[in-house]
Amino acid sequence: MKSTQLNVKMIDRLKEPGKYSDGRNLYLQVGPNGSKSWLFIYRRMGSDRMRGLGSYRHVSLDEAREKAAEYRALLRQGIEPPVARGAVKKKEEGRTFAQLNERYLSEHKDSWRDPDKAESLWRNSLRDHAYAILGEKDVKDIDVKDVHAVLSPIWLTKHPTAKKIRWRIGAVLAYAAALDLRPDVDLTRTGGKLDKLLPKAKRVHIVKGHDSMPYQQMPEFVPELRGRVGVAAAALDFLILTAARAKEVRLATWDQIDFKEAVWNAPEENMKAGRAHRVPLSPDAIAVLKAMPRDRDGDYIFISASKPGEPLSDMAMTAVLKRMDRKDGVTIHGFRSTFRTWVAEECLDVPREIAEAALAHTVGGVEGAYQRGDYFNTRRALMERWAAYCRSAEQ
């Protein structure tokens, strides 16, 4: 971007494509084909924005300076400059909510953890609940009544889903505003008009956690589980013994296991907190691993029966519970709660931070800023106690 005050002779001689500054937010843009047009460029909310002031053939240098002065005056009053009538019009395609959502996903998904899954959940939620009202609507025409129409049918009945959809709609509209495709107004903000239209969901909706098995049942349940044949049953046994999440177990590979030190080095990309986690392996957990077939280094430990070489599916371990005729609603993730409750009630000598570290929970605040260790040796003793408790009915 060339910076100098312009004059008519200079403008007539300019041939090289680029933007040439006249100072005070006014620029002359020279296109690849030699075309020349005026731009007013300013900064707002941390990003550059521009307004076209027309072609140099129709708008003189003095007229462009006069218009730029008007726009600067508007900015001093906190008013966004309008798109001038003589400006180069933006392309009309790509202005619907559905189109902007796809653009947003393509530009942001790679920064998310597990981008393919996150993208699918994001797209499907908006397609199922928002597209009927917002999908084909120009983003500049979407108002709070439209957002309310999307959310009100599910605000009380599917409140967690509705909250996610509210946030996602807000993100797409903010993205559109950053592209100057709609007013920079946050329709979904907390405390705004939308909150006045929607009922107080917290008074009628109780957030339900993952159903967990009472820890007292584990000594009977684990031997029954170990009596079943199959990779999914072994994966569930390993999940229980390590208090890990299902994704971490499904994506575990042989090269993450240090048999000599009895450690599972779970990489950051598999962890919810985005931080690598060392898991001490009890003799029971090592026994599960050694019983698994192993073809070569680097493969997944728990391989899908229907897709050789691929990890277990999301529902494989849940299917094991169904085959065991569990009708109490216990979930796979609930076994982490079972472990945490057992520690709280049966291991009174174990500090809270040890139990939280075993679950790979991130400690926040001042405590998190100063705590750098992972209590590994103490956690090893805890996991061995947990394994012994899970098989105590066998003794």
Rank of each mutant, 00 (worst) to 15 (best):
I133V: 08
E66W: 14
D146M: 13
S55I: 02
R113I: 02
H159G: 03
E248V: 04
E102H: 14
E16Y: 00
R85Q: 15
G329W: 13
E66H: 14
A285R: 01
L61C: 01
K164A: 14
K164N: 15
Q371M: 10
L236M: 03
K90E: 11
K196V: 07
L6V: 01
T190V: 15
A174R: 13
E92W: 11
A316F: 05
F376Y: 15
V204L: 15
E310D: 09
W155N: 02
E224A: 15
D48L: 11
V88A: 08
Y27V: 06
L382K: 11
Q29R: 12
P280N: 01
S125A: 15
L236S: 03
R49M: 10
R113L: 02
E345Y: 12
I79Q: 11
L312G: 02
I165M: 08
A98Y: 14
R296N: 11
L61V: 04
D12T: 12
N25A: 04
T362H: 10
R166A: 08
C347A: 07
D237R: 08
G364H: 05
G209L: 07
D128S: 14
A369K: 06
L156A: 01
R250W: 00
P82K: 15
F221P: 13
P17M: 00
R51F: 02
Q395W: 15
P153G: 03
R76F: 10
R203W: 11
A305W: 07
A235V: 00
E66Y: 15
W254H: 04
L281A: 02
Y56V: 02
L251M: 07
R336W: 03
L321W: 08
G34S: 02
S106C: 14
I303P: 00
Y375V: 08
V330Q: 05
P311W: 00
D349F: 10
T318Y: 13
V363P: 00
L126I: 13
R372T: 02
M317R: 08
K260N: 08
R245S: 04
K158T: 04
K9P: 03
V139A: 10
I206M: 08
K202Q: 08
P293S: 09
R323G: 09
H205Y: 12
R385L: 10
M213Q: 04
E346C: 12
Y389G: 10
E93M: 13
K109C: 09
M218K: 13
A68K: 05
Q395N: 15
I354M: 12
Y27S: 04
G329A: 09
A177I: 09
K158L: 07
A357T: 07
L348Q: 14
M1P: 07
V150G: 03
A291R: 08
K137L: 12
R326N: 09
P32M: 06
W386H: 07
K137D: 09
A69G: 01
L382Q: 10
A171Q: 15
F40Y: 08
I240E: 06
L181P: 14
A305I: 11
I133D: 02
Y27A: 06
K145P: 06
R43H: 11
A360N: 09
T242N: 05
G170W: 10
P351M: 04
V139T: 11
G18A: 03
L173M: 13
S120V: 12
K200M: 06
P293W: 10
